[in-house]
């Protein structure tokens, strides 16, 4: 399963990077969303996937059987942060779009006299 997950994560990253490199604002934002999904799964996979019990203390479960809780804590933080970042970039994007009248990144770059 870990190998499969690794490939899946690679695929997510690939799609995300491709989207981010495009010229359209909205695609870049969606790309960052995908990128964070990929990163979360990467963290999870790094900790190992074969745990038998959720990291919540339960009667009758030996310590060894719990899933690694640390990646989960990190991911939880990351999920909420990426929500904030996505929201921020979304607003940034549409405000830029409204102000400049374009969503093409190549047209937005500053020039010598107006940067």
């Amino acid at each position: 399963m870990e190998i499969l997950m690794s490939i899946l994560i690679g695929f997510l990253f690939m799609a995300a990077v491709y989207l981010i490199l495009s010229r359209s604002l909205l695609r870049i934002i969606i790309g960052t969303g995908l990128l964070s999904h990929g990163t979360h799964l990467l963290l999870l996979t790094m900790g190992g996937l074969g745990g038998k019990a959720a990291p919540v203390l339960t009667e009758g479960v030996t310590v060894k059987d719990y899933v690694d809780p640390l990646p989960q804590a990190l991911i939880l933080t990351a999920i909420v942060i990426s929500f904030g970042v996505t929201a921020f970039s979304l607003v940034l994007a549409y405000r830029t779009y409204k102000e400049l009248g374009t969503d093409n990144m190549d047209l937005m770059k500053g020039t010598e006299d107006n940067d």
Partner: peptide, 15 residues
């Protein structure tokens, strides 16, 4: 959130 901002967002142009 996306749907809320939908009105303001540009089209999914492929440039």
């Amino acid at each position: 959130l996306f749907l809320g901002a939908f009105y303001h967002l540009p089209k999914l142009n492929k440039h």
